[in-house]
């Protein structure tokens, strides 16, 4: 069921489970059934449903409330980090009430002001390390403060974000060393010069392999379409 476009990417292809984020499906924004269909065509095992902008959340809530039959064995939701209007307490509560089949809620720590309402998500909450442009949640030291306040939260290792801090991958290694026991899933992509997720380059794939080898037991989510061969 894995797309043939990954045929020349043996490291990714050999991993299981592998899935995609719907966040890159700009042409299907708001059309959840279409996003799911495209994600399922790539892999029926794992998916991340992205409601990165807050105004996407109501549509996702309605879609999941309709109890669609989904094939995925791992289902995560990326919570809003853009266009935030509602209170943190309301947002955390609404995310907590999403379908029981949602196994992880990924949040950007730099968008959390008050950890208190987020504690209710318990282990479902997963904090992602941020890229170099952000002001918090980037390094192991910065993330440690968040995990101290949200002790049950898991870790989403965004390897491209970590690489943006330090192309020697030392910062990435520190992140994985510090939070490996919390690791829940991995975001895989490269970053463009302006910080957008783009297809994993061959150069980055080679650079990332030693760290990805430490993450063999968790889902890998592609945050950009796989590169064409």
């Amino acid at each position: 069921m894995i797309s043939p476009v990954l045929a020349e990417s043996p490291v990714l292809l050999s991993h299981h489970p592998l899935g995609v984020s719907t966040g890159y499906m700009d042409d299907l924004r708001g059309e959840w059934e279409g996003q799911i269909e495209r994600a399922r065509a790539f892999s029926p095992f794992a998916v991340e449903l992205s409601a990165l902008a807050e105004d996407e959340l109501p549509g996702l809530e309605r879609y999941l409330q309709s109890a669609p039959a989904l094939p995925f064995r791992y289902l995560s939701v990326h919570g809003p980090s853009k266009g935030r209007v509602i209170s943190e307490a309301e947002l955390a509560g609404r995310l907590a009430r999403l379908s029981v089949s949602v196994q992880a809620i990924v949040m950007h720590p730099d968008t959390i002001r008050d950890p208190e309402p987020w504690r209710a998500l318990g282990r479902k909450l997963v904090l992602e390390n941020m890229d170099a442009r952000k002001r918090d949640g980037r390094s192991a030291e910065e993330l440690e403060r968040w995990f101290a306040q949200l002790p049950h939260a898991g870790f989403c290792f965004d390897i491209a974000h970590a690489c943006s801090l330090d192309e020697t991958m030392l910062a990435a290694t520190e992140l994985l060393d510090a939070f490996r026991t919390r690791l829940r899933h991995v975001h895989v992509s490269s970053l463009s010069h302006d910080g957008h997720h783009v297809a994993l380059s061959e150069e980055h794939e080679e650079l990332f392999v030693p760290l990805l080898q430490r993450c063999l037991d968790v889902p890998w989510i592609l945050e950009a379409p796989p590169r064409e061969t």
């Binding site: 994985l176 490996r180 026991t181 690791l183 080898q213 430490r214 993450c215 063999l216 037991d217 968790v218």
Partner: peptide, 12 residues
């Protein structure tokens, strides 16, 4: 088989 981290999480 050089999979200490996955092993720690699994047996954890």
């Amino acid at each position: 088989h050089h999979a200490a981290d996955p092993g720690g999480r699994a047996l954890g």
